[in-house]
Amino acid sequence: MFYPIQRYGEPKYILNLAKKLLLPYLIFQGLYTVLYFLLGREEWYKGILHPQWAMRFLVSLFCWHILLVLFKRIPAAASILLAVFIGIAAGYVDLSAYGLSLSRTLVFFPFFLAGYFMTKENVQLIKTKALSIAGIIFMTALFAFIYLFINVDVTLDTDWLSGAVAYQRLEAEMSGGLMRLIIYILAALLIISMIALIPSGDFGWLTKIGEKTLYVYLLHGFIIQPFREFEILWYNHWYETFWFVLLSALGVIVLSSRPAVALTRPLVELKWKK
């Protein structure tokens, strides 16, 4: 999708990046604005600098590649630590008024940066039986803790994970930095656990689906948002999670299918044919 790593920062690379990310952003920003208008949302228009729902990812991804021009010049450990420090510090300032998903871009940049620096050798060191077992234990314990002690229905709790809200609005102006650091550590451990558990190799049609994740990401809002607006789906009991998993899997299969990709390729990749 992008030019080789060594060409980061060159004018041609930046122009290609803008074509791959910013043009689809403008297109889908307009489409989601129309969708919200048709759904009767009061705040259906946000302007070009304030991404509609999931569109923030395209803006952040573009910004991360630009930031990488500077951060890749710093040794990996120091670079990631600096990004974590910036992500923690960002919470002490309300960046919501600046648009372009600035807060989320800074908060989640360490994960993008870690992915850039990670090598195949690093992955092989993680993919061991011991870490797989440890990962299962850790994820089970974390799930139990969240289920027993975290009220996921309270916005104040879930906003900690969005990266978009300043500590002051989360009623943690002093302790917010420590909370975000803990979240960083837990998220890193979850990622390591998942890498340890994911099998290696080509899995046929599942691998093909993985190649079309951008389509799923950009298009799934046209299903989710009407469902939310008209309260077609609801969640009352824990076992109803299985229905959501099945529906999500079905949505992924449909939106990554050959007909869906062929129909929407002009919007996503700005191409009429593969």
Rank of each mutant, 00 (worst) to 15 (best):
G177M: 15
Y217K: 00
M179E: 08
T155E: 12
I183G: 14
V165W: 03
F108R: 00
F145D: 12
E240Y: 04
F109D: 03
L206S: 11
L189Q: 13
T207A: 15
G201R: 15
D159C: 13
K129P: 13
F117P: 09
L113C: 06
N122D: 15
L125S: 01
M179W: 02
A141G: 12
F242T: 06
Y217P: 12
W205S: 08
K129D: 13
Q124H: 15
W205C: 06
F227C: 04
F111I: 01
G115E: 11
Y217H: 01
L214M: 12
D157Y: 08
L206K: 09
L186I: 05
H220I: 01
W160N: 14
T140V: 14
F242A: 11
T119G: 08
A187F: 07
R169M: 00
L161E: 04
H220F: 01
A130P: 06
K129Y: 00
T213Y: 05
L106S: 10
V152I: 11
M179N: 11
S132W: 00
E171P: 04
Q168Y: 10
I183W: 02
I185T: 14
I136L: 11
G99V: 11
F149P: 06
A134M: 14
Y239E: 09
L148R: 10
L190C: 09
G99C: 12
I182S: 10
H237P: 08
I133Y: 14
I133H: 10
A130F: 09
Q124W: 01
L181W: 02
E240D: 02
T105L: 04
L214P: 03
I198P: 13
V107A: 14
L106V: 08
S193R: 06
Y215P: 04
I232A: 08
A188P: 12
G163D: 01
V123E: 11
M194F: 04
S132M: 15
H220K: 00
F143G: 05
K129F: 00
A166Y: 01
L156G: 14
S101G: 07
